[in-house]
């Protein structure tokens, strides 16, 4: 029972090399869920710092990307009250439902206004998805995680995760189906 001692500098460098390739994926997800570039950067940074502290070059995680996302999703949930609420992480009394809905509508409205390019129909369509739909859709369609992992991270049943993704895809197809993308120039009517 001996452990291979690796210097702190080597461990740090090894972690940065391994983790750097996932930065765009992590940032993309955080950006979609948090909508604010500064918050997304903060959350990704905290995710990396947290992961580096636990990283052992002698025994690296089998799937570093999944591990990073495990930490990221929890941090995003902590930051995004709307997403946490929809994922059932924040319990609400039923008599607060109306207030919640109004609040969610306001949130979506704010998100839409906050978009950098509101003329982009894809961004607009994505922003209209409910936060939890957007999160599940992104983790499944963009990052291609298994529904079981996604459900586990968000604390929702697998069937619920599947339904959220299906509804998100249906909504996007409905809004974008009659359009075709023109590379580099947003989208044009098909």
């Amino acid at each position: 029972m001996t452990s291979k001692r690796i210097s702190d500098a080597d461990a740090r460098q090894r972690f940065i090399e391994c983790a750097a390739e996932h930065r765009h994926a992590l940032y993309g997800f955080a950006r979609q869920c948090l909508r604010d570039a500064a918050s997304a950067e903060d959350v990704v940074q905290e995710t990396y710092v947290s992961a580096m502290r636990g990283f052992s070059p002698a025994d690296p995680p089998r799937d570093l990307r999944a591990w990073l996302f495990t930490i990221l999703v929890r941090r995003v949930l902590t930051h995004n009250r709307d997403l946490a609420r929809e994922a059932g992480r924040i319990e609400l009394r039923s008599d607060l439902d109306d207030v919640t809905r109004r609040s969610a509508a306001r949130f979506d409205g704010n998100v839409e206004r906050a978009l950098e390019d509101t003329s982009d129909p894809l961004k607009r369509a994505i922003s209209r998805l409910a936060p939890v739909q957007r999160a599940v859709f992104w983790l499944r369609a963009i990052d291609e995680f298994d529904y079981r992992e996604i459900a586990d991270w968000l604390g929702i049943p697998v069937g619920t995760a599947t339904s959220h993704a299906t509804r998100a895809r249906e909504q996007l197809r409905r809004e974008l189906g009659s359009w075709r993308f023109a590379s580099g120039n947003g989208i044009e009517k098909g």
């Binding site: 570039a37 950067e41 940074q45 974008l176």
Partner: peptide, 28 residues
């Protein structure tokens, strides 16, 4: 087609270089 187009465009999202520089500096 719609799904592929959506995926293609959304995957193109990149973390700005200066943001990664700040993170890397902190990790160091």
């Amino acid at each position: 087609t719609v799904d592929d187009d959506v995926r293609g465009r959304l995957r193109a999202e990149r973390m700005p270089d200066d943001a990664w520089s700040r993170i890397e500096a902190r990790l160091q």
